[in-house]
Computed example of a mutant assay.
Amino acid sequence: MRLKLRGKSFGGRAVLGPLSLEVERGDRVAILGPSGIGKSTLLRIVAGLDPAFDGRLTGADRLATVFQEPTLLPWRSARDNIMIPTGCDGPTASALMDRVGLPGREAQYPRQLSLGQQRRLSLARAFAARPDVLLMDEPFASLDAETATRMIDLTRDLLDDSGAGLLLVTHDPQEPARLGARALRLSGTPAILG
């Protein structure tokens, strides 16, 4: 995945300035910066969710996204939440649920799971898609310290095993080091990578 951004504006206000970003399979990059600087906007551009930017996004990489909120289908079981969007089979979905610490919960619905469990389910769904690059938008925010540590360790192990790259958006300067990611900072108006 390669992004050559000349700029991104909202309502005539420049939010992101010129920047280049490249993340390939096996690379790990974290984007840091204060709230409102444009980190999530940058991630949405990379994910293909915001095509209204001036620049060029290239690469045939297979991407999967984990958002801050789990974005699960509330009317579907946990296992269906993995299988339907990714097309993986039942045994693969169940194995991933085991891997993220949700064994035996395949038939439960998202409302029957805690926030930490929903986030683990979202992580399992992302890896079921077999991504070349995993995109994560503050996935550990609002978790207690112990749960966040377990999620970071689990994410690092899944990345190690799969060989997927990582583009992480975070406020926490400790998360990149714990995930083995190179930290880049967004700053300025409009924001650029420094």
Rank of each mutant, 00 (worst) to 15 (best):
R2Q: 15
K4V: 14
K8H: 14
K8M: 12
A14M: 08
L16I: 11
G26L: 06
D27K: 01
R28I: 01
G33D: 00
P34M: 11
G36L: 07
I37F: 02
I37E: 00
I37C: 02
L43V: 04
V46P: 00
A47N: 01
G48M: 11
F53R: 08
F53W: 10
D54A: 13
L57Y: 13
T58A: 14
G59Q: 12
G59C: 11
R62I: 11
A64T: 05
A64K: 01
T65I: 14
E69D: 15
T71C: 12
L72V: 07
P74Y: 12
W75Y: 13
A78Q: 02
N81S: 10
I82L: 15
M83Y: 07
M83K: 12
I84F: 14
T86L: 04
A93V: 05
A95D: 08
L96H: 01
D98T: 10
V100S: 02
L102Y: 05
L102D: 06
P103L: 08
P103H: 09
R105I: 13
R105F: 15
E106R: 06
P110G: 07
Q112C: 07
Q117T: 09
Q118S: 09
R120C: 04
S122Y: 02
L123H: 05
L123T: 03
A128Q: 01
R130G: 10
P131V: 06
D132W: 00
L134I: 06
P139D: 06
F140V: 03
F140P: 01
S142G: 03
A145P: 12
R156Q: 09
D157G: 10
L158T: 05
D161R: 13
S162Q: 08
G163I: 13
T170V: 06
T170E: 02
D172R: 04
P176K: 08
P176Y: 06
A177Q: 14
L179V: 04
G180W: 04
R182Y: 02
A183D: 03
L184D: 00
L186Q: 01
G188C: 09
T189A: 15
G194S: 13
